[in-house]
Computed example of a mutant assay.
Amino acid sequence: MTTRSVEELDEVIDQTLREAELVHEHPGPGVWLVDLPGTKKLKTVCGLSVGEHALRVEAFVCRQPDENREQLWTFLLQHNARMYGVSYSIDNVGDVYLTGRLPHAAVTPEELDRILGSVLSYADDHFNTMLEIGFGTSIRREWDWRVKRGESLRNLEAFAAFADPTRRPDADPSRRSADGVPSGE
């Protein structure tokens, strides 16, 4: 087994991040923080840490859920079986992370690109579903509060079908007009 030096791995990581034009920090030897821009989760910060035999990859996805913990854990574990390079994990308080390890020999520009792409995809693709499962009551409450106060719903639009009572399949029919359109629209 070939173990590469921290300096050699830092050089590969630095070159890869610069070529990919990713915003990043290098606070110390073998330690990197990379900003991965998403669409649902606007930014995922991915940490890369060079260890004695492997590069550790870790990214925070969301805080511990307010509700439906077991349902969220089931959702995450079912996805783990199909994931590349990283998997969902939780810390001691229940916050959700993506974690993985690459042996030193696998730290190449191509493999770093794949693993960072995996982190971005897994953090971003299912983010709204994770929030709906773990924070559904809070999202609906926030939606209702904003509607009542006439506040903007712009940053909640991704949850409209989930949070807006007039759009949910279980919507109260009394809130709809005769042509099926939600009243007040």
Rank of each mutant, 00 (worst) to 15 (best):
L98K: 14
T99V: 13
M130F: 01
G94L: 08
S121A: 08
H104K: 02
P103M: 01
M130E: 02
E110W: 07
F135Q: 07
Y122L: 09
P103W: 10
F135A: 13
T137H: 14
N128T: 13
L131G: 09
L102M: 12
Y88C: 00
S89A: 10
T137F: 04
I139Y: 01
F127T: 05
H104A: 13
N128R: 12
S87P: 06
T108V: 02
T129K: 10
R140A: 04
Y122S: 09
F135D: 10
Y88H: 06
H126M: 09
S118D: 07
G100K: 05
I115D: 14
G117L: 05
T137N: 06
E110F: 04
D124S: 00
D91P: 03
S89T: 12
A106C: 09
A105V: 13
V107C: 06
G117W: 06
V119F: 13
G85Y: 10
M130L: 00
L131R: 12
Y122C: 15
G85N: 01
G136P: 11
D125A: 11
M130R: 08
L116I: 12
T108L: 01
G117I: 03
G100S: 08
P103R: 05
T129H: 00
H104I: 13
S89R: 08
N92Q: 13
R114T: 06
N128Y: 00
N92R: 10
D91F: 12
R101T: 13
V86L: 11
V107N: 06
S121K: 14
D124H: 11
G134P: 00
D125I: 15
N92D: 15
T99K: 13
T137V: 14
M130I: 04
N92P: 15
I115C: 15
S89F: 03
D113Q: 15
Y122P: 05
T137L: 05
E111Q: 09
I90Q: 14
V86F: 10
S89N: 03
N92V: 11
G136E: 01
D95G: 14
L120T: 03
G134V: 01
L120C: 05
W143T: 11
G117C: 04
P103V: 14
D113K: 14
Y97A: 05
S138I: 04
L102G: 04
E132Q: 12
R101F: 08
E142I: 07
E142H: 01
E111T: 05
D124W: 01
Y122N: 06
Y84V: 12
H126Y: 11
D125W: 02
D124R: 05
P109T: 02
V107S: 04
F135P: 05
P103N: 15
R101C: 12
F135R: 09
Y88L: 02
V107F: 02
S89G: 06
A123E: 05
L102H: 05
H104M: 07
S87Q: 10
Y88A: 06
V119L: 03
I90W: 04
L116F: 00
P103L: 11
V119E: 00
R114F: 09
